[in-house]
Simulated scan of single mutants.
Amino acid sequence: MSHNVNNDVGKMIRKYRRARNYTQEELGEILQIDQSYLGRIERGEINITLDTLTKIAKALGINPALLLETKQNVSDQSRAKILEKIDSQLLTLNTSELMIVHNMLREVLQLKKI
């Protein structure tokens, strides 16, 4: 099976859209594009321009590069899914909440060393 960038980008768009609790319709309204077009993007059915990718990223409040990241180098799929869930949950937090989570994680990892 060949690697399909459109599918990967579409999955990342869906992931970040859901993390922001947007429906396809809501994000489509923000972007001023039809919901069905956004659905086709998320399913990897069409190529999008860098301009469109940038507009989507801006609407989602993320760096466009995040939409181009793939997990193809992660051999353990269950590990990748867990990391994706954690990432999606962290996206919903504000800066002070992220700092709290970061401090807690650092403490847990310190305990692991003991």
Rank of each mutant, 00 (worst) to 15 (best):
Arg79Phe: 12
Gln24Glu: 13
Ile41Gln: 01
Glu25Tyr: 09
Leu50Gly: 14
Lys71Met: 07
Gln72Pro: 00
Glu84Asn: 04
Thr92Met: 09
Glu42Val: 10
Thr52Ile: 14
Glu84Lys: 02
Gln32Val: 14
Ser75Cys: 07
Thr49Gly: 07
Ile100Phe: 01
Ile48Arg: 00
Leu83Ala: 14
Leu60Gln: 01
Ile30Val: 13
Ser88Ala: 12
Ile13Lys: 00
Ser2Lys: 05
Glu45Met: 06
Gly61Pro: 05
Arg79His: 09
Gly28Ala: 07
Gln110Tyr: 01
Met99Thr: 12
Lys85Trp: 06
Ser96Pro: 01
Val74Gly: 01
Leu67Asn: 02
Leu27Met: 08
Gly10Asp: 07
Ile100Trp: 00
Leu91Asp: 04
Ile13Glu: 00
Asn47Phe: 10
Leu109Val: 15
Ser96Asn: 10
Asn63Pro: 06
His102Asn: 06
Lys85Ile: 11
Leu111Val: 09
Lys81His: 08
Lys85Asn: 10
Ala59Ser: 10
Met12Glu: 10
Ser96Lys: 09
Val74Leu: 05
Pro64Tyr: 11
Gln77Leu: 12
Gln24Tyr: 08
Leu109Gly: 04
Asn4Asp: 15
Pro64Gln: 09
Lys55Gln: 11
Asp87Ala: 11
Val74Asn: 01
Tyr37Pro: 02
Leu90Met: 10
Thr92Gln: 15
Ile30Met: 08
Arg40Ser: 09
Gly10Asn: 05
Leu53Cys: 12
Gln32Pro: 02
Ala57Met: 07
Gln89Leu: 06
Asn4Lys: 09
Ile41Val: 15
Ile100His: 00
Val5Ser: 04
Arg106Ile: 14
Tyr37Trp: 07
Tyr22Ser: 06
Ser75Pro: 03
Ser36Glu: 08
Arg17Asp: 10
Gly28Val: 09
Lys55Glu: 14
Val101Ser: 00
His102Met: 05
Ile62Ala: 04
Val9Tyr: 04
Glu69Lys: 09
Ala59Phe: 03
Glu26Asp: 10
Arg18Gln: 10
Ile33Cys: 05
Asp34Asn: 14
Leu53Trp: 07
Val101Glu: 00
Gly44Thr: 12
Glu26Ile: 14
Ile30Lys: 04
Ser78Lys: 06
Thr49His: 03
Lys11Ile: 11
Asn103Val: 11
Glu45Asn: 04
Ala65Asp: 15
Gly28Ser: 08
Lys81Asn: 11
Leu91Met: 13
Gly61Val: 14
Lys11Asp: 11
Gln72Thr: 15
His102Pro: 00
Lys15Thr: 15
Ile13Thr: 07
Ile82Cys: 03
Leu67Ala: 08
His102Cys: 05
Leu91Lys: 02
Leu60Asp: 02
Ile56Asp: 03
Ser78Cys: 06
Ser36Ala: 13
Arg106Val: 15
Tyr22Pro: 01
Ile114Thr: 13
Gly39Gln: 02
Leu111Asp: 12
Thr70Tyr: 02
Ile48Gln: 02
Ile48Trp: 03
Asn7Phe: 11
Thr54Asn: 15
Asp51Ser: 14
Asp51Met: 08
Asn63Arg: 11
Glu26Phe: 03
Ile86His: 00
Gln35Cys: 09
Gly28Tyr: 04
Leu60Gly: 03
Ser88His: 01
His102Val: 05
Asn94Arg: 04
Glu26Val: 15
Leu66Tyr: 14
Arg43Ala: 12
Leu83Lys: 02
Thr23Asn: 05
Lys113Pro: 01
Arg14His: 07
Ser75Phe: 11
Asp34Cys: 08
Thr54Ser: 14
